[in-house]
């Protein structure tokens, strides 16, 4: 048993290494018929690279929007820390990468959308019933990603929280599955994506008591109002045609996840 768990731990470590190793080779901005689109490569349910293909809600929304703009998307990895740089240097045109709209980020980039309202939530083992939200975390061991917004927020919300921080969520999920931490906290979409993965199906559940609001927007170069309005029109069409609901059900549905209040969201005005 222990041997298997150590094996799982090693595998998760190896995964973490490869995930950070495959950097993107950036180039000039998209011209002609292709458009460079930044997504996450390592988040199941949202943006995940599977072989040479890409899967997830962010990917499906990106494909739809690109099609509406008459372009073929070329996917490029956009890790959280590099998103602003990728946009401002023109290495990608649009970013769909669990990119929350915040005033701080609006200083360096512009946003279309939002196309999804997520919220910080908790992921626990399926047989756990005593963790119901941020108020029931006393004496529990939590896990999140180093320096992430979720890690900072849980520290503010639950003073003295017993928080282990790792480099990626995969490591947290491995430890949660092994039973050595009690809960993993970040956006409910990311949690649902992990819970829906084949190897964790039925073993983990999202608590469903969100305590923040993350409005996922489409990142684009600051001040590109025309592009922003085109993207917003495409997003609206996606929601109206029912494609949006289909994409959400297909990518996040398998874990029994239902989008929270406010979904599907109406886009903000472009500026």
């Amino acid at each position: 048993m222990k041997v298997r768990q150590i094996g799982a731990a090693l595998a998760a470590t190896a995964l973490a290494l490869t995930a950070s190793a495959c950097g993107s080779s950036g180039g000039a901005g998209g011209g002609g018929d292709t458009m460079k689109v930044g997504i996450k490569f390592d988040q199941p349910g949202l943006g995940l690279k599977v072989g040479s293909d890409y899967k997830g809600l962010d990917v499906d929304v990106a494909k739809y929007v690109a099609k509406e703009l008459g372009k073929t998307p070329e996917f490029i990895q956009a890790p959280s820390a590099q998103r602003e740089t990728l946009l401002s240097t023109g290495q990608v045109t649009l970013i769909f990468a669990t990119y929350s709209i915040t005033d701080k980020r609006k200083e360096s980039v512009s946003f279309a959308g939002p196309y999804f309202i997520a919220g910080q939530d908790l992921l626990v083992r399926a047989d756990n019933s005593d963790i119901t939200g941020p108020d029931s975390l006393a004496g529990k061991k939590l896990c999140s990603v180093t320096g992430s917004t979720s890690a900072q927020k849980i520290k503010d919300k639950v003073p003295g929280v017993n928080l282990q921080e790792f480099g990626t969520y995969s490591e947290c999920v491995a430890a949660l599955d092994a039973g050595t931490i009690d809960a993993l906290t970040t956006d409910n979409t990311i949690l649902a994506g992990f819970a829906a993965q084949e190897q964790y199906k039925g073993k983990l559940k999202v608590v469903g008591n969100t305590f923040s609001e993350e409005r996922y927007g489409v990142g684009l170069k600051k001040g590109d109002k025309a592009l922003c309005e085109q993207v917003n029109a495409a997003l609206k069409k996606m929601v109206d045609s029912g494609e949006w609901q289909k994409a959400v059900d297909a990518n996040l549905g398998p874990a029994g996840f239902k989008p929270g209040a406010g979904n599907p969201p109406a886009a903000d005005a472009c500026s």
Binding site: A16, S80, A81, Q82, E84, T85, K104, R105, E107, S108, T146, G147, S148, T149, A151, Q152, L163, Q164, E165, F166, G167
Partner: peptide
């Protein structure tokens, strides 16, 4: 060590600042 330590030492703090303020 930032991989396991969180945002206490220099590299972790840098990634926290990047997360909040942009790179």
């Amino acid at each position: 060590a930032a991989l396991i330590l969180g945002a206490t030492e220099a590299a972790g703090t840098l990634s926290k600042i990047t997360e909040n303020e942009g790179a």
